[in-house]
């Protein structure tokens, strides 16, 4: 994949097409992309394809609770993956849960990355007071437990998806900031930056045009890991009782709810959402890994 794809001058090729053609070189990554596309479609159209609306309490009958996979409900719906402790169809729950989990993971991941990178780069390049201020903020943030942040937000703002995303962004931006600053400090001393300075390019242009692309590879690694991390963290918060509203479960909350049934032999309540979570995260990472290699300017010399 690091094949000398250096294009001969004159050959017509848009950057996008080149990206695609490089991307498809790895079959595993293509598989990941296909699975991810399917997952996204499922998440997007969950209301249309789910047998039941798992978020509508009037549709759930407590007498249908804890049914094993393949059972039929009182109203004749078949629960292909069984039901949870409230009588919620697991399959529908997983479809809707995917939606919530992906939204939480992706939004919080992107927001945290943007905030973290902006602040981290600024710190690395500006130096002085600005850097001090930002980096001490990072110290402060990193030492503040997620649980406490989530609990404070819960007490002040109440429960909800938006609040969880906010909590995750508050928690995660510092990781990005800290990492990108470390990388940027090294990049800053490289010849190409000095060259750019000599050319009289503006500061923002040097930061975002030259340093940023070269800092991307580790950021993408952390980014893909953190999207997964955000989804898992949301699960942990739900496990601790400070996550999403219990009537609108995400994958993580489904797993956390199923946790109490792990020893009881009712495996389906946390097993199936667990599998769904695993597949989602693996496909995100397969795509992420390949993207990183393709986008890395240095692997293309």
């Amino acid at each position: 994949m690091s094949a000398p794809s250096a294009t001969a001058p004159g050959k017509i090729e848009t950057p996008f097409r080149r990206l695609v053609s490089e991307f498809v070189e790895d079959r595993l990554a293509v598989l990941g992309a296909v699975v991810l596309a399917v997952i996204l479609l499922v998440a997007l159209f969950a209301p249309l394809i789910s047998p039941q609306n798992p978020y509508d309490l009037s549709k759930l009958d407590i007498l249908d609770s804890r049914l094993p996979p393949g059972s039929k409900s009182m109203d004749g719906i078949t629960f292909w993956l069984g039901t949870d402790g409230q009588g919620r169809d697991m399959l529908s729950g997983i479809f809707y849960g995917l939606r919530t989990s992906l939204a939480v993971g992706v939004f919080s991941g992107i927001l945290a990355m943007v905030v973290g990178m902006a602040l981290g780069l600024t710190a690395a390049y500006a130096g002085g007071r600005t850097e001090t201020l930002i980096m001490r903020l990072v110290d402060l943030q990193l030492s503040f437990p997620t649980i406490l942040i989530a609990l404070i937000l819960l007490a002040v703002l109440g429960q909800g998806v938006g609040k969880i995303i906010l909590a995750l962004v508050i928690v995660q931006w510092a990781y990005y900031a800290r990492t990108i600053r470390g990388t940027a400090l090294v990049e800053r001393r490289r010849e190409y930056v000095e060259a750019a300075i000599c050319l009289g390019l503006s500061k923002p242009r040097i930061i975002f045009g030259h340093i940023l692309p070269n800092c991307m590879p580790p950021m993408i690694v952390i980014g893909t890991v953190q999207v997964a991390g955000a989804i898992a963290l949301e699960a942990t918060l739900s496990f601790l009782g400070i996550g999403l509203p219990i009537t609108e479960p995400s994958l993580g909350l489904l797993i956390a709810n199923g946790f109490e049934y792990l020893l009881s032999g009712k495996y389906w309540i946390s097993f199936f959402p667990g599998i769904a979570l695993l597949i989602t995260i693996i496909s995100i990472n397969l795509v992420g890994d390949q993207l990183r290699d393709v986008l890395n300017p240095r692997l293309k010399r």
Partner: peptide, 16 residues
């Protein structure tokens, strides 16, 4: 692939 599994499982689940 194995390393992905390592961080995608929630710790409470994995621990139990």
């Amino acid at each position: 692939a194995g390393s992905i599994v390592g961080f995608s499982l929630p710790t409470f689940w994995q621990g139990l």
